[in-house]
């Protein structure tokens, strides 16, 4: 008999939520693709290759990322820098830098291994149809991302999650970290 008030209470609780969802904005649904969930600052999405402010690539072709990769997804081919026409500030640069996205498990070890902060896992999780990467997506080869696909402009990279500058920007614009 003590079930009856419990059931009535429960029915009232669910009805309250139903009304709040139908007529209010209680719904927790994020209507992708119109809305997107804000990603956390340390989100590990598609890789990016960073540049220095002067436009030189950070990657020095050391292959430490490839050595750290547990899925063996990274292939780096280094080449000597031409002092007249430098690609990176170091001795060498990555002539080829490829990540096989079918193998990558997005663990972020490459980012941890990188001595120059060149490779980072960015905020982009839409690997298929993001602008500028029109692909066939039919062959296995189509899933090998090349250096050109991952390089970003200076200052457009993933912000350092611990940087105070970012906190400053967040203070000025609270919506800043909603869509990167």
């Amino acid at each position: 008999m003590k079930l009856v008030p419990a059931i009535v209470k429960g029915m009232g609780r669910t009805l309250k939520h139903a009304i709040g969802t139908t007529f209010g904005d209680e719904s927790i649904t994020v209507s992708y693709p119109e809305q997107e969930k804000p990603r956390p600052r340390r989100f590990r999405g598609r890789h990016i290759l960073n540049r220095y402010e002067n436009g030189l690539e950070k990657c020095i072709g050391c292959s430490l990322c490839a050595a750290a990769c547990p899925a063996d997804a990274i292939w780096v081919e280094a080449a000597e820098n031409d002092p007249q026409n430098r690609v990176s500030p170091g001795e060498r640069y990555a002539a080829r830098y490829e990540i096989n996205m079918l193998r990558c498990i997005f663990c972020g070890y490459c980012e941890e291994a990188c001595p120059t902060g060149a490779v980072q896992l960015g905020y982009d999780y839409k690997l298929i149809d993001e602008e500028g990467r029109q692909h066939n997506w039919q062959d296995r080869d189509d899933f090998i991302f090349t250096k050109e696909m991952m390089l970003v402009d200076p200052g457009k990279g993933k912000p350092d999650p611990l940087s105070e500058a970012l906190d400053e920007r967040l203070k000025q614009n609270p919506n800043h970290d909603r869509v990167w």
Binding site: T14, H17, I19, T21, E26, S27
Partner: peptide, 13 residues
């Protein structure tokens, strides 16, 4: 729709 409302979802839309 109704069950979606009770479960704080949107339902088919």
């Amino acid at each position: 729709k109704v069950v979606a409302g009770f479960q704080v979802r949107v339902g088919p839309n």
